[in-house]
């Protein structure tokens, strides 16, 4: 499991959240491993079961106001209950004042306490977003990613089959290249996003020509920095043994980082225009998104026609 140190969080977001570190220690014994955060109201009130100690604990105005209503003994016990948990860190929002007991218990438990002037709920949203990005599953895929009519096409296939040439042809026809031959895929909010490795961005290798800079050659309208991956287009040598989809009644799926996306396998035959096929894949996907399924509609029409002619013949 990937983990993030509290120090890394502090240093990455110090400026954005105007973090101040209230404890002497910034090194937590526990790594941040989840993107969810928690408001520890119930444990302060005395309910300790099912406490989510792996999460960052956020103290907002409600928690602090609640602590103020307690007498000295109850107050101390409430803080004790919280710091008996091994949490990665505690963050006080809204720049709220804290008391001495809280800081003392935090130091004893060696749990860092940070403070931000931001309001609690917007802060939680921004923090969660940062953590989700930090924990987003990532992988590299051998393929090219092109934005075709707003649809992210991931073009895959063995080396030398013509992925780059297909991508180049698409660029020539006005579509946007995101990355060639190597896609860094990240899964966020149950969607897949692809981008180039930064130092290779907008460069392509074309066999026989070498490395070209697509942004310089075709201009900014030919490129995109990142793109949601909607469909995989798999290029394969034509083989008599393989059955290709001739109807498109079922959508075939492939799985990347645990997320299923449609995959279209296109047989490569000399003289066939792969680029037009790629455009049709993109448009067909767009139609499906809009609820239009050509094969099913044709099938219904056909069945309707046959029904009518049977009735006429029988009646």
């Amino acid at each position: 499991m990937r983990g993030l140190t509290v120090r890394k969080l502090y240093e990455d977001r110090k400026e954005a959240f105007h973090f101040e570190c209230l404890t002497e220690v910034l090194e937590s014994e526990r790594l941040i491993t989840v993107s969810d955060v928690h408001r520890p109201g119930l444990i302060l009130a005395g309910f300790t079961r099912n406490f989510l100690s792996e999460r960052i604990q956020i103290l907002g105005e409600t928690e602090m106001l609640f602590l103020e209503t307690l007498d000295a003994g109850q107050h101390e016990r409430a803080i004790d209950r919280l710091f008996e948990q091994k949490m990665p860190c505690v963050i006080i929002a809204k720049g709220l004042e804290y008391d001495e007991i809280l800081m003392r218990r935090a130091s004893e438990a060696r749990i860092p306490v940070l403070r931000t002037p931001q309001s609690t709920t917007p802060f939680i949203h921004e923090l969660t977003e940062y953590l989700e990005n930090a924990f987003a599953p990532q992988t590299t895929v051998h393929g090219s990613l092109v934005d075709v009519y707003g649809v992210g096409l991931l073009i895959t296939g063995r080396s030398g089959i013509g992925k780059s040439e297909c991508a180049l042809d698409l660029v020539e026809r006005g579509h946007r290249l995101v990355t060639d031959d190597m896609v860094i895929v990240t899964r966020r909010h149950n969607l897949l996003y692809g981008e180039a490795k930064e130092h290779l961005r907008y460069h392509m290798e074309i066999r026989g020509i070498g490395i070209i800079d697509v942004r310089r050659m075709f201009g900014v309208r030919a490129i995109g920095k990142n793109k949601r991956i909607d469909v995989e287009v798999r290029l394969r040598e034509w083989s008599a043994d393989v059955e290709y989809d001739r109807l498109g009644l079922e959508e075939r799926m492939t799985t990347i980082l645990g997320k299923k996306i449609p995959v279209v396998t296109i047989p490569i035959i000399p003289g066939k225009n792969i680029t037009v096929l790629a455009e049709v894949v993109a448009m067909n996907h767009q139609l499906r998104v809009h609820g239009i399924r050509s094969a099913e509609e044709l099938s219904e029409n056909l069945v309707g026609t046959m029904d009518r002619s049977r009735r006429r013949a029988g009646g």
């Binding site: 990532q138 051998h142 080396s159 030398g160 190597m182 490795k197 130092h199 290779l200 392509m204 290798e205």
Partner: peptide
């Protein structure tokens, strides 16, 4: 490290840095 690429691809290998 965590980057795994196809070693028949120039861009892949360059991506390893």
């Amino acid at each position: 490290g965590s980057y795994r690429v196809n070693a028949k691809s120039i861009m892949g290998i360059l991506g390893l840095a």
